[in-house]
Design a protein around this nucleic acid. Structure first.
Lengths: 241, 241
DNA sequence: GTAATGTTTCGGCCATGATCGAACTGTGGA
DNA sequence: TCCACAGTTCGATCATGGCCGAAACATTAC
């Protein structure tokens, strides 16, 4: 009954699964559209829109209009710090949101994250592209370099279609909490996964997000994306306000 | 849909008004009983008991049985740090839980906090007792010194009854967020307020937590608890795990 | 023993709010 | 101009969970 900051209001704002997913997705530091956040949160666009309105009103996120897209980002480093603290506490208390079977090794090895590859293989791919200078930092976050464009074209990706057809961001890094590392998302991440699936390098495990390599696919993947040692993948600051 | 700590679960635990009140009350660093926490949270004992079970299961509080009382305290400094961060963010975002009329000056001057006095007058009382060595730090938090016992006895408090009759903690400091200072709670805090009410030094304002001094009462109060300058009231660490 | 006090469990009521379908607004491209 | 796409608003549904009364359980005092 005392006066004071309304702890409950701000915590309740975070303490709703869909909103928590949205905020977690925004922890990568980049602005995402309503539709993207809806997918991340696993809800429809209407629902996400409502949640984002609440989050904005609560001062946790800020919108930025760009054409017919509306990008949302975390509002400042203080919000990120609070989320970090909460994530740490949740991890320390053993509260994990591992829905599809806790600690499944195959999920850690390679899995689908929305429409791109995550897990150890996803990180390998990302690191390998970065280390060879195919990906580089850009004002918008992450960009394909000239050498990178040549590489993915040689890999079999139709970059022109990718860039023209969809309005979606080409490259984005996606932070995995299990690995604490980034992997490649965005239109390119999707295209790479699609291509590898089409080449039978790997296939989805039914009823799971896991991906399983074929033996030939594993060899081809290792050749295309050789492992990188001594590389710190977090080149860009994920907490840029 | 990513793996990771369950942000929502831990935040939802905090983001419920009653539970948030409980946690805020525990931010003082001392263990409180179920009944006390129920009063702090403004709910019945059954409800508080249920909330505390959830908080315990979530790893935010730890119980400690002592006879027929069950004391709850925050579980470690990490929890306190998260709450601090949340309180700070809430304050920064202007989320205040001032239910009874925002910024009522009479509430700030003197008000009831459960059963003892809070507000500027409450802080004055507390500081005055501390500065004169009537209250001092103790293993249990706060204790009445020998001089203090003599003082309150002279003031008209029946210390023997207070100590024998009730099992309640005699002295406790209560942290006010509006003032960021401590005031005296516990059995003694209650007894002092009751005594002053009985002496017509002040009376409750109907329908409010505010207390209003009579003119004679104000003079008597000022004489009994002279203001203390240059005194930092937070002598004990409120964050002791 | 009985009484008093503190805490928990059970049951049912009820409000909050999350969710989605459908319809509407606004922007950009052909 | 028409269409496609992004986002918002509205309305209805529905589940979660907070809440308290009553009663059981536990512990201490007398």
């Amino acid at each position: 009954m005392k006066e004071g900051p309304d702890l409950a209001r701000i915590a309740a704002l975070i303490g709703e699964p869909a909103r928590a997913n949205i905020l977690t997705a925004l922890m990568a530091g980049r602005a995402l559209t309503v539709t993207e956040l809806a997918t991340e949160a696993g809800v429809t666009v209407q629902t996400a829109s409502g949640h984002l309105a609440r989050l904005e009103e609560g001062g946790l996120v800020v919108p930025r209009r760009s054409g017919r897209h509306k990008y949302f980002a975390l509002r400042g480093a203080e919000v990120a710090r609070v989320l970090e603290a909460l994530l740490g506490l949740a991890a320390a208390r053993g509260h994990l949101r591992s829905r599809p079977g806790p600690r499944d090794p195959s999920l850690r090895a390679a899995r689908v994250c929305y429409d791109h590859m995550a897990g150890e293989a996803g990180i390998r791919l990302y690191d390998s592209l970065l280390a060879r200078g195919f990906l580089g930092p850009a004002p918008e976050g992450l960009a394909l370099t000239e050498a990178g464009a040549a590489f993915v074209t040689g890999f079999g990706i139709d970059l022109a279609t990718l860039r023209a057809g969809r309005r979606r961001v080409l490259c984005r890094d996606c932070l995995d909490w299990s690995e604490r590392r980034s992997h490649l998302a965005g239109a390119l991440g999707r295209a790479l996964l699609d291509h590898m699936l089409g080449q039978d390098w790997l296939h989805r495990v039914e009823g799971s997000r896991a991906l399983r390599f074929t033996s030939a696919g594993r060899r081809a993947f290792d050749a295309a994306f050789p492992p990188v040692d001594h590389w710190f993948p977090e080149g860009t600051n994920p907490q840029a306000a």
